[in-house]
Amino acid sequence: MSSPLLPDLDSPLSPPEILRFNLERNPTFPTYVYPEHGTGNLTEISMLEFVRSCYRVGNAVYGDSKPGDVVAIIANLDTIVYMALIAGLMNLGLVPFPISPRNSAPAITDLLRKSSAHRILTTRVTLGGVIDAIQSEIQSGEPYALSTEEAPTLQQVYPHLGKETVRNPFIVPPPLFFPKENDTAIYLHSSGSTGYPKAIRLSYLNFQRLY
């Protein structure tokens, strides 16, 4: 396996720029490798396929949102879908907030309010009870607008799972978001071992300092 081409680390790229760089410079480099169920054969998700999946996520979830809006993710998803969802939201300037469904409804509600997240992407088949409890908790407190919708599926995000190439038709969207250093890139949360978990804001500058 050849090494990927790397950007100039003295001039860090934003996450949207990283996606575009890898699509152009490292399209065949494997992003994920996993054994196929039942056969043990290895399947590779190339950088081209992963970046396209991120763009598909954007088409699926953007809706009426605008850059800076926080979108909570409370869902049971395959890793390759979850990561495409996070990167796809960031590519549009939306702020992903992955929240563990193991938190209590009051704790999750507190995180939503403190981060000003008014959308939840979820998987109701597996987490319907959690979402119902959150909505009940929201309704019992101060008025707070909250919408819930299904997260994109594996089929939507990876229609050619493990087999997508440059020959598969795809229109690369133009750059739509150019983040500033202090813009919020993502929210995470603490473990909540001593009380409610705390929302942790990371800016794009925080990301650059990870290089």
Rank of each mutant, 00 (worst) to 15 (best):
E36C: 10
P15D: 10
A185F: 05
R52M: 11
R113I: 01
R25D: 09
K114S: 09
G58D: 08
L9P: 06
A199N: 01
A107H: 08
P175S: 15
F50Q: 05
R201W: 00
I138T: 11
L42R: 15
S46A: 07
S116W: 02
V130E: 10
L48F: 07
Y32T: 05
L146H: 04
G195Y: 13
D78K: 11
Q139Y: 03
P12L: 06
T122M: 07
A151F: 01
T28R: 15
Y34D: 11
A107R: 02
V95L: 03
I200F: 06
I186Y: 02
G195M: 12
P101E: 10
K66F: 09
D78L: 09
S203E: 04
P7W: 10
E36H: 12
V172S: 10
A105I: 02
C54M: 11
V130P: 00
P96S: 06
D10F: 06
F178R: 06
A84V: 06
P16H: 06
L19I: 10
S3W: 14
G63N: 13
V71K: 10
R102G: 11
I18P: 04
E142Y: 06
N103R: 08
G38V: 09
N59F: 13
V130Y: 02
S53H: 04
G38D: 04
I80D: 05
L202N: 10
E17S: 15
S100P: 08
V33T: 14
P7K: 10
V95D: 00
L154A: 09
T184K: 04
I18H: 13
V157Y: 02
P35F: 01
V95W: 00
